[in-house]
Computed example of a mutant assay.
Amino acid sequence: MAAIPTSAVNFDDLPDSALVALDVVTTVTGVSKATVWRMVQRGSLPAPRKISLRATRWHVGELRAFLAA
């Protein structure tokens, strides 16, 4: 079993402008990586931002709004 990412453990303490990786999104939503991407395709989960050629991140504020809905 993989360790829980530090950003997921401290999710409530992160500013809304913070960016988090897919492993944090799967931890806070409780769904698999594949389900996260399906939800993004359906538009039910906020789309991530491509911050470099090989890095995609989600805004914490958008994830909080999704989780609160």
Rank of each mutant, 00 (worst) to 15 (best):
V28A: 10
F11S: 12
I51H: 04
V9I: 15
A68L: 12
A55E: 06
R42H: 06
W37C: 01
V40Q: 02
V24E: 10
S32P: 06
P46I: 02
F11N: 10
G61E: 05
A47N: 05
V24P: 15
D13N: 11
A55G: 03
L63R: 09
V36G: 03
P48S: 14
I4K: 08
F11M: 14
S44C: 07
V40H: 01
V60E: 00
N10G: 00
A21M: 12
V28H: 08
H59M: 13
W37F: 09
I51E: 13
S17C: 11
A3H: 13
S52D: 15
L45D: 00
E62K: 10
L53D: 12
A3C: 14
W58E: 05
M39S: 02
R42S: 08
S17N: 12
T6D: 04
D12T: 04
P5V: 11
S17W: 02
N10C: 04
S7D: 12
W58Y: 05
H59Q: 12
V25F: 02
A69T: 04
V25L: 05
G30H: 07
T6F: 00
M1N: 02
R42A: 09
S32R: 03
G61N: 09
G30V: 13
V60K: 00
G61W: 01
S17V: 09
R54N: 12
A34N: 09
T27P: 05
A69Y: 01
G43R: 08
L14N: 13
V20C: 13
